[in-house]
């Protein structure tokens, strides 16, 4: 087996004496599509922030692409897409092209400039998410779903090995949500990019994810998506602390 893209060993994290994460062990295999589900306040976002190096664990080890996180420098190999469709400054006067270029900032590095090759990369990333015809539109004028595709392009442009998405479909209208997940599925299958998707939408798990993890302070389940669908309602409600209906998506 190849080395996992992200590996957490015995990770603990507390926030102001409140234990958020308890003894987390999690490996994200290369090329997998991991869906991370769990109730609000279960520590999903905290886990993401630990993996992104925005927080440091109280205990335990995290390694990214085989390197301990403390010495990991190649952050441009990790793409990140947040709930930005809701929270970025909509009045920001930037074109889609400019926003996607930002995905190359650290890759290009200090005292180096954006050149023709980078421009081609940006256009290519926009083609991958089917947004190239909007390249010179203002980002604020697009719909939530289109904006999220642009942010995916920004993550893609740096040739990432892993893309982390934190509830990316919040604020995206439901008609475009399916299209959005189809895009993720394609990136995972065709480009071989590993994905870590945090979501409330448990139905997505059964349709797209190759692996599923349920987090509520501790990791309650971590396996492939078939095993996940076979979990009983009782087991699921134990994880969530309340009854859940698993809706199986199919076309």
């Amino acid at each position: 087996m190849t080395e996992p893209v992200v590996s957490l060993k015995d990770v603990y994290f507390s926030y102001e004496n409140k234990r958020i994460l308890n003894n987390i062990n999690l490996d994200i295999p290369k090329g997998s599509f991991l869906g991370l589900v769990g109730p609000n306040g279960g520590g999903k976002t905290t886990l993401i922030q630990l993996i992104l190096g925005l927080l440091t664990p109280d205990q335990g080890d995290i390694s990214i692409l085989g390197q301990p996180i403390s010495t990991f420098k190649h952050w441009n190999r990790i793409g990140f897409v947040s709930q930005k469709a809701n929270s970025f400054n909509k009045g920001f006067p930037a074109t889609v092209f400019e926003v996607v270029s930002m995905g190359l900032t650290t890759k290009i590095g200090y005292f180096r400039f954006f050149n023709k090759k980078h421009k081609e990369k940006v256009i290519q990333a926009l083609q991958q998410v089917d947004m190239e015809q909007y390249a010179y539109q203002n980002i604020g004028n697009l719909s939530g779903g289109q904006q999220q595709r642009v942010f995916i392009a920004r993550a893609l442009v740096g040739d990432p090995e892993l893309i982390i998405l934190d509830e990316p479909t919040v604020g995206v209208d439901y008609k475009n949500v399916d299209r959005f997940y189809d895009l993720l599925h394609e990136l995972n299958k065709k480009e071989g990019i590993s994905l870590l998707l945090v979501t409330h939408d448990t139905g997505v798990m059964t349709k797209y994810a190759t692996n599923v993890a349920c987090l509520n302070q501790t990791l309650h389940f971590h396996g492939n998506s078939e095993e996940y669908t076979s979990l009983t309602d009782k087991e699921l409600s134990e994880i969530y602390g309340h009854p859940v209906n698993v809706i199986v998506h199919d076309h």
Binding site: L52, G53, L54, K73, H74, W75, N76, I78, F80, S82, K84, F88, N89, F92, A94, V99, M102, G103, T105, T106, R154, G158
Partner: peptide, 13 residues
């Protein structure tokens, strides 16, 4: 990059 999205800027290294 920093002006558009401080969180993203930090995450991207």
């Amino acid at each position: 990059t920093l002006s558009f999205d401080e969180e993203y800027a930090t995450v991207s290294g």
